[in-house]
Simulated scan of single mutants.
Amino acid sequence: MNRIVVIGAGQAGASLVAKLRALGFSGQITLIGEESVPPYQRPPLSKAYLLGEMTQERLFLRPESFYVDQRIDLHLGAAVDHIDRGEQLVRLGDKVLPYDALALTTGSTPRRLPAMIGGALGGVHVVRTLADVDAMAPDFTAGRRVVIVGGGYIGLEAAAVAAKKGLQVTVLEMAPRILQRVAAPETSAAIQALHEGHGVRFMLATGLERIEGDSHVTGVALSDGTRLDADFVIAGIGVTPATDLAEAAGLMVENGIKVDAQGRTSDPHIWAAGDCAAFPYRGTSLRLESVQNAIDQAELVAGNMLGAGKEYDPVPWFWSDQYDMKLQIAGLNTGYDRVVVRQSDAPSHWYFAGDKFLAVDAMGDARAFMVGKRLLEMGRSPDPAALADPQRDLKALLRA
């Protein structure tokens, strides 16, 4: 195998090509990205970068010289037109790039508010790319009014930055509580209280009827008849896997590009990793949107493209920065029926299904996160009574 092409220059794509070289692959590597800048970190975009605490150059995962030094052909600002599986070609404008193996690390795209309710007005933003954040940054001026649609992690991180910069912040959530799909009521309540302590207003079980304005946002009309003045709107209503290329190429797609445990798609010459990939996980199909997954899965796929033959069986973990509190999550809480609260200055919430430990939400408690993650890696379930006792040493649970 002499030629590997990787489509998608985000965290997964950058990790994959770097790992190929680290593993000794000496053939041609091409990395294609639609954005005009080199691969960069996304998590700081809606936090440190938007706050002005991080420069654009510090976002870059590696300097551009890395790709030159590692003989990685980097195509930026380039959109792939077509994948020809029969000829094993990628068509990129007037370029034709042959491949022996192809990897799709196309990531995900943000859901946008419909144009018919005002989603195309000036001042309606999403948070995904560097260009998205650069476009909204001038609106983050003290005293301005922002309505954030969606009480998930992306919307809440934007709310935290807006509140810190002195804006008037309202969060709309159609569900009865924030984070309803991903967190227990205990975690939702703690995060909401943190935001309310910084002046954020929440309107729960409330939908958006329309965004008002002629060419630019002036306000929003809500499902309960309320009208709010607004200078701009941020849509934090989730993402969808970027599967258009895969679908057009005839690959199997099911809530993401379907891959086997090694990361191979329905075409033996094509692989996928990161946000876009749906992989087998303990009897089901799973797609993860996290930095950890993008790196780990991409590096595993790099090895498997070279014949390693390893299967992906992660212990998922995530984080979200909310003001000065870091929420760290280990595991997946799907199917939980009980939450054990460990109450302290930095509380943690431990999810169980019966006696089986599933996940932990650690709010500013790095030790709880690390112990929970290690327990999951060991396949062990701690004593709930010991967890609930803040006087018990968490690390002792690893020896019990």
Rank of each mutant, 00 (worst) to 15 (best):
A249V: 01
A273E: 09
S266R: 07
R227S: 00
N255R: 13
A230W: 02
P241A: 11
M252Y: 04
A235E: 12
A221N: 01
T240R: 15
S266I: 12
C276D: 04
G250H: 03
V253I: 07
S266E: 10
I257P: 03
L222E: 06
R264Q: 15
G250A: 06
V239F: 07
G238S: 04
A221S: 13
S223M: 01
L222C: 07
P268Q: 12
E254F: 03
W271H: 13
W271E: 14
I257L: 05
F232N: 04
G225L: 05
S223F: 02
A249W: 02
D229S: 03
D229A: 12
T243P: 09
D260P: 07
D267Y: 14
C276G: 02
G274Q: 12
I257Q: 01
V233N: 09
A273T: 09
G236N: 05
V220Q: 02
D229K: 02
V239A: 12
M252H: 05
H269Q: 13
V253C: 08
V259N: 13
L228A: 13
T265F: 12
D231A: 08
M252K: 10
I234K: 08
A242T: 08
T240E: 12
A235F: 14
V259Y: 03
A230Q: 03
G256N: 08
A273G: 03
I237E: 11
A221G: 05
A277L: 00
D267A: 15
A249R: 01
D260Q: 12
I237Y: 08
K258W: 10
G236D: 11
L245C: 08
V233K: 03
I270T: 15
G274E: 11
G256F: 11
A277Q: 09
G250R: 03
M252N: 13
T265C: 15
T243W: 08
G263W: 14
A248F: 01
A242M: 09
G250I: 02
V259Q: 06
A235Y: 10
L251C: 02
W271K: 06
T243K: 04
A221I: 00
S266H: 08
D229Y: 04
V233S: 01
G274H: 06
V259K: 06
G263A: 04
T243Q: 04
G263R: 12
